[in-house]
């Protein structure tokens, strides 16, 4: 029996196209919103996953950075007449710059200490967001009015919820392509060397400072993009979405899903947003849902060191080998 020469990225494109075409058609209003959120968090998870898998660096502030991206998007939306895309791009770049600033301590630290720096940043952002909230069309720099929020402009191409979901899926694909392109080009080779040994990388002429900073910038860019998209989806944001514990949880789920492949990242985002939605829909008590969720998280971290995606890919390649053996 001949096997199809399926490559991981081909499957990915196929799946994305399928979701792009089908999801908005089959979903109701509630699930449309759940999957839109999932797409936004996929971008942030992709950022956390790739710097962890490729550089061994841990960012526990991805969700906080999303908040920053969302804040900038909302701020620009209510104070300028720029189109959504422009706001989103500025927000993503702005968040990338903060991500790069985060890389300053990262240049000298790794492992747990680096993770803790990012956790401290997440803690600080949480306090800032709670105290100043998100612009909703009010006056002043912080832009928080007490009446209901002013209109949030959506992309011209995606005014309805269904079109907006497609728009988000498209951006997720672009995000993954952006990462993959980096990995295959010069930065990817530099990162691989840095991961092995910084001294060796330095000796072979790699600008360690630049490439580490660049990695954090890219990760921040993706988070900012996700945050801006979330703002566009909901029309306004709330501080409680961007707590430090949410950032830690998202990273935990990236490990559970598997940081090395796009599948793992998507799984992480699905666990982050779709699973709680399902439990809530089934009427499971919110407190008990937390218990199940925590227990499942523990179980997955213990039993699947390569993540669930790693297990799936391992299973598939074993199957394929067996098929080849029979042929």
């Amino acid at each position: 029996m001949p096997t199809l020469p399926l490559r991981s990225w081909q499957v990915g494109f196929f799946l994305a196209a399928l979701l792009f075409l089908l999801l908005p058609v089959v979903l109701g209003g509630q699930w449309m919103r759940i999957f839109t959120s999932t797409a936004c968090f996929t971008l942030a998870a992709a950022g956390a996953g790739f710097i962890y898998a490729r550089l061994g660096m841990v960012s526990l502030t991805q969700v906080g950075l999303m908040g920053l991206g969302g804040w900038i998007t909302l701020r620009l939306n209510h104070s300028t007449a720029l189109p959504f895309e422009a706001n989103l791009a500025i927000a993503a770049i702005g968040t990338a710059v903060l991500g790069m600033a985060l890389a300053l301590p990262a240049l000298r630290m790794r492992g747990l200490y680096l993770a803790l720096v990012t956790l401290m940043v997440a803690g600080g952002l949480e306090i800032l967001f709670t105290a100043y909230q998100f612009p909703n069309g009010g006056a002043g720099f912080w832009g928080v009015g007490t009446s209901f929020a002013a209109e949030m402009r959506r992309p011209a191409l995606a005014k309805t919820d269904a079109a907006y979901l497609r728009y988000c899926i498209l951006l997720v694909v672009i995000g993954f392509v952006l990462i993959e392109w980096h990995l295959r080009a010069k930065p990817g080779r530099a990162w691989a060397l840095i991961r092995r040994s910084e001294a060796a990388a330095l000796a072979s002429g790699v600008n360690v400072t630049l490439y580490k900073t660049w990695a954090f910038g890219l990760s921040g860019l993706l988070a900012g993009l996700g945050g801006g998209l979330l703002a566009g989806s909901l029309g306004l944001l709330d501080a409680s979405t961007f707590r430090a514990s949410e950032s830690v949880l998202l990273f935990a789920l990236v490990i559970v899903g598997g940081a090395r492949s796009w599948l793992g990242i998507v799984l992480a985002a699905v666990l982050f947003r779709v699973a709680p939605g399902l439990l809530n829909n089934w009427g499971v008590d919110a407190d008990l849902a937390l218990v199940f969720f925590g227990a499942a998280l523990l179980h997955a971290v213990i039993t699947a060191p390569e993540g669930i995606a790693g297990q799936i890919i391992g299973l598939l390649s074993r199957l394929r080998r067996r098929n080849r053996g029979q042929a």
């Binding site: 209003g29 944001l237 809530n280």
Partner: peptide, 21 residues
Amino acid sequence: VENDQWNPELAAQAAAKLIDD
């Protein structure tokens, strides 16, 4: 009756479920 669990995203989803669906 829907539970928003103090989560703004769940609140928006709950409203979409009730009103759209």
